[in-house]
């Protein structure tokens, strides 16, 4: 299954981005502030309509899908973890079934189990820690069984342990055949955990490929104007200045 953007442009924030993404992999979208990362993710999720260009899901224009049909296939996790009312954890996870209009007990239980949330089922979300809430919100996406998981900075508010835990869950979903697309600020996380990296700069694609190539020191210098180098072994690399 593929999700592709063809010459997508939007209001000066994106200026002709073309990329075809595949399921079964983690794709990271990186770039400096204001590069258009979140905008590209919203366009790929079908939440923003591009001024020009198209987004296609398995060769079909995303815009032509009914919002509910699209929602069944695209799971979107926004940057701000909004939870307006203090509902119980299981009720919140169950919101992922809204596009399906069924109870979806099996899927909800599976999503809660996958993210180790079963014991919290009846807890109000206000009683959870930030890391637990992040897992609940991801479980909400998983309960809808989407083909694609698109998450905007899902790791930003988490400590190291929760970051690695959430990335492990996302890797498992990619291994199951889902497409995982993440906006990431932390280049080390992208380097160590993404199969493919899209680097955006001022709304244009500055690099696209395996993490080691797309985040090479010379790309970082060109896009971020910072001189850096990678140290460590593949899978456990760290970015240092100079």
């Amino acid at each position: 299954m593929t999700l592709s953007a063809q010459e997508v442009a939007l209001d000066g924030r994106l200026a002709g981005v073309t990329a075809t993404l595949d399921t079964g992999a983690i794709t990271a979208i990186c770039g400096p502030n204001g590069a258009g990362k979140s905008t590209l993710l919203s366009v790929l999720a079908g939440l923003l309509m591009p001024d020009s260009g198209t987004v296609e899901l398995d060769g079909m224009a995303l815009a032509s899908l009914h919002p509910r049909a699209r929602a069944k296939r695209m799971g979107y996790l926004p940057q701000e973890p909004v939870i307006a009312w203090d509902v119980a954890v299981r009720r919140l996870v169950a919101l992922g079934r809204l596009p399906h209009r069924d109870r979806g007990d099996v899927q909800i239980d599976a999503a809660m189990k996958a993210l180790d949330l079963t014991e919290f089922a009846g807890h109000p979300v206000s009683r959870l820690s930030g890391g637990e809430r992040a897992r609940v919100l991801l479980a909400r996406v998983l309960s809808g069984e989407p083909d694609w998981i698109l998450a905007d900075e899902p790791l930003a508010a988490l400590d190291l342990g929760h970051r690695l835990g959430l990335l492990r869950h996302l890797r498992r979903e990619a291994d199951k055949g889902r497409g995982v697309v993440l906006v990431l600020h932390d280049l080390s996380l992208a380097m160590n955990h993404a199969d493919r990296v899209l680097v955006l700069d001022e709304g244009r694609l500055a690099a696209d490929g395996p993490a080691a190539d797309a985040l090479a020191a010379k790309v970082i210098e060109r896009v971020w104007s910072v001189s850096t180098r990678w140290i460590g072994d593949p899978g456990a690399r760290a970015l240092v200045s100079g």
Partner: peptide, 20 residues
């Protein structure tokens, strides 16, 4: 009623769940 439930997660997530 379902759209109002989806809004628990905020506007963007609600739209991603099919709320118009």
């Amino acid at each position: 009623r379902r759209d109002l439930d989806a809004l628990i997660l905020g506007d963007a997530a609600a739209r991603s769940l099919g709320m118009r």
